[in-house]
Computed example of a mutant assay.
Amino acid sequence: MELINYQTEKANTHTRYRKPLVGFASAHDPLFDQMKEIIGPHHLHPTELLTDAQTVISFFLPFAKTIITANRESPGIAREWAVAYLETNTLIATISATLKRELSAQGINVVTQPATHNFNEQDLTARWSNKSVGFVAGLGTFGINHMLITPSGCGGRFGSTVISAKIPPTPRPTQENCLYLRNSKCQFCVTNCPTGALTIKGLDKHRCYAQLLEVDKQFPDLGLCDVCGKCAVGPCAYCNEE
Rank of each mutant, 00 (worst) to 15 (best):
A93W: 02
A93L: 07
T94Y: 00
T94S: 12
T94G: 03
I95W: 09
I95C: 04
S96L: 00
T98H: 03
T98S: 13
L99R: 06
K100Q: 13
Q106P: 14
Q106E: 15
N109P: 03
V110E: 03
V110K: 14
V110D: 06
V111C: 12
Q113Y: 01
P114W: 01
A115P: 06
A115F: 01
N118L: 05
N118C: 04
N120H: 12
N120Q: 03
N120E: 05
E121C: 04
Q122A: 12
Q122M: 10
L124D: 00
A126R: 04
R127A: 09
W128M: 10
N130D: 10
K131E: 14
S132G: 14
V133L: 02
V133Y: 06
G134M: 07
G134T: 05
F135D: 07
V136Q: 00
A137G: 12
A137Q: 15
A137R: 11
L139W: 09
G140K: 10
F142Q: 01
F142C: 01
G143R: 00
I144L: 09
H146G: 06
H146C: 14
M147H: 13
I149C: 09
I149N: 14
T150E: 08
T150L: 08
P151R: 10
C154R: 13
C154W: 07
C154E: 10
G155V: 11
G155A: 15
G155K: 00
G155H: 05
R157L: 10
F158W: 07
F158V: 04
F158P: 02
G159E: 05
G159K: 08
I163V: 10
I163Q: 14
I167R: 05
I167L: 14
P168A: 15
P169Q: 05
P171L: 07
R172E: 13
P173G: 11
P173Q: 03
T174C: 06
T174N: 13
T174L: 11
E176K: 03
E176W: 09
N177L: 12
N177Y: 15
C178I: 12
Y180M: 05
Y180Q: 07
